[in-house]
Amino acid sequence: MPKIIVEVMPKADLLDPAGKAVANSLQRKGHEAIANVRIGKRIELHYDSTPTEADIAAARAIAADFLSNGVIEDVIDVRVEN
């Protein structure tokens, strides 16, 4: 199924509690090489046929004002995957 993949990450300078909790756990397990962990979201938009340029533009708009919150998150990537 053709998809548009949207990736959203918490802003770099913002506390990511989930990432921090996982990082602390990994540190305790002895994975000292891992300095930090950040957890974001991968969101798939499924289409019946290959997305058009208009679909991609619409997806970018959806990603910016619905799938992410620009105050706390960045949209890292919007790409087509067939």
């Binding site: 509690p17 989930a18 909790a21 397990k29």
Partner: peptide, 16 residues
Amino acid sequence: SFGDYLRCGAIAAQAP
């Protein structure tokens, strides 16, 4: 536990 981050119970399962 641990805010249910990652998955419920997942981080607690790694605790000492």
